[in-house]
Amino acid sequence: MTFREKIHWVAFVTMLLAFGWYFLAFPWSIAASPSALWTAGGMLIPLTLGIIVAMTVATVILAIRNRKEVHLAEDERDRAIHWRGTHLAYYPMVVGTWACIGLIFTGAAPAILLNLLLAMVVGSELLRIGSQIWLYRRH
């Protein structure tokens, strides 16, 4: 497995675990209350810091263990894979955006909107990274 693939796996697993925990641990019973927004904020700040630390540490370790590949420039295959992954991720982003617009008109609570936006971004990112991992294996 190449350095690029390993980095993709690290990002995929980190996001899956971190946001999997967030969506499971979020107190959905109070999601409609004003305080839920601050609860979400309180959970997201350490979560974001944790993701940054975990990915930085993992990247440094992988870079030390794969020194030859660290400075390899992207070639046309890498760019094609990245483009296809990003293209696929565009669709859930659009669907999520329209869902948020629809929810705004129903007077949804801010925490609900926040979580929907978050789910949209996380889902898109997981699809992008996951599809790129799959394409690296297939192409």
Binding site: R77, D78, H139
Partner: peptide
Amino acid sequence: GVTRQTIAA
């Protein structure tokens, strides 16, 4: 000017 993996693919 491409990677080894690209040549293999």
